[in-house]
Each structure stands twice: as structure tokens, then as C-alpha cells.
Amino acid sequence: MLEWIRQLGRSGISQFETLGRANLFLLKTLVGLPGLLRRPGLLVTQLWSVGVLSLLIIVVSGLFVGMVLGLQGYNTLVDFGAEESLGVAVALSIVRELGPVVTALLFAGRAGSALAAEIGLMKATEQLSGMEMMAVDPIHRVIAPRFLAGFISMPLLAAIFSAVGIYGGYFVGVGLLGVDDGAYWSQMQDKVDLFDDVLNGVIKSLVFGWVVTWIAVFEGYDAVPTSEGVSRATTRTVVYAALAVLGLDFVLTALMFGD
């Protein structure tokens, strides 16, 4: 019994240590960011690998989410005779919530796990150590461009998801189910506020981008340098990032859309 409590204490202390390490790591990364201005090539390469390569899954998911929303939204609204408001339902759901959150979850799974694995592998094959011995700070050269790329990519991907989703809803609602074209857009434009909805969605995706990328690069950097260690780091990335996104989403939603 006592041993169990001690175990709990030990694990708690180690969690705090990890948290501390993660924060110091973040600070070092941020310090390394200005150096990227001199070497934009590094950032561009990472934007490609983190952002562009995520486009396919984001666009396809956005399309399907929007289409399903169109379908389900129609089914529910038609009972109230309010199917003309489909545009509003689809747009608000996507712009406020589904856009930032689903994009962040997909990003964590696709780009986050890739980042963690790549960095963990570099650690396991002593590439990071090698850089250190060559007097090149691996945090500045390897981590910082990836972090910035994730932070920049996330809101762009979320915006693309949202736009594609709304058109997906349009395709199903107006194209297939007969909702009035004008009503779809005009009611939407009436109800969706640039600042309260669109901007808040962008802010959410910026926060998610920061957190998901931070978790991914840290787990990779902190991984045990064996193949098992890297695999565990990748899993942890996806799980922690997903939980963080959902938890933060609740907090942000309460702050932004509550009273």
C-alpha cells in the first residue's frame, strides 16, 4: 500500500520534471527562431514536409465533414421547417469548432507523429549529438524550423478545411437536397461574424498549432534513443496532443463563446 503511494509520488515528480524540461526546451527553441531569418531554406523545407504534405488529408476530411454536416443538418432542420438555415448551421459548426479541432487532431496524427519519429530517430542515430560536437546547436537547426513551420501551417490548414467544408455542405445541401442557393449564403453571411467566429477560429488553430507542434518536437527530442523509445514517443505525441487539443478547445470555447 505504502509502496503504491510512493510510486504515485515518484511518477508525479517525474511528470513535473518532464514538464520543466519541456518548458526549458520551448524557451531554447524560441531563442533559436530569429536565426531562421538568415536561413529561410530550412523553414521552407519544413513547411513543405509539415504543411504541404498534410494538405491531402485535410482537404479530403474537410470535404467529407462538410458534406456530412450538410446531410445531418438538413435532416434535423427540415423537421422545424428551417432547412433554409442550413448554411448557418454548417458554417458555424465548422468555423467555430470542427475546423480548428479536427484539423488539429489530423495534424497531430499525420505531421505530429512524423515530426516526433524523425527527431527521435535523429537522436537514436546520434545525428543530434554529432551536430552538437560540430558546434551546431541542434535545437536551433533542427527543432526551431519545425516548430515554426507547424505554428504557421496549422491556421492555414484549418482555414482550408473550413472553406472546403462549407463548400462541401453547399454541394450536399444546395446541390443534392434542394436548399435554396441564395438562402444558404445569405443567412450564413448574416449570422457568421468575422471577429466572433472566424477570428476566434483562427486564434484557436494558432493555439492548437503551438501546442501540438511543441508536444511533437519535444517528445521526439526527449525520446529514449532506441527503436522502442521512438515508437513510444510517437504514440505519446498523438495521445497527448489529442487530449491537449480537446481540453484547450473546451477552455477556449468557454472563454470565447461563453458569457
Binding site: 513547411l47 473550413s162 457568421v192 467566429d197 472566424v198
Partner: peptide, 18 residues
């Protein structure tokens, strides 16, 4: 990619919002 993202934001601002 960046242009597409910016365009999406533009669409959201102009076509979707008020």
C-alpha cells in the same frame, strides 16, 4: 500552400462572414 491558406481565409472572411 501558403497562397491556398490565405485564399481560404479570404473566402471565410468575404463569403462566409458578415
Amino acid at each position: 500552400f501558403i497562397a491556398a491558406g490565405a485564399a481560404a481565409l479570404f473566402v471565410l472572411a468575404m463569403r462566409v462572414s458578415n
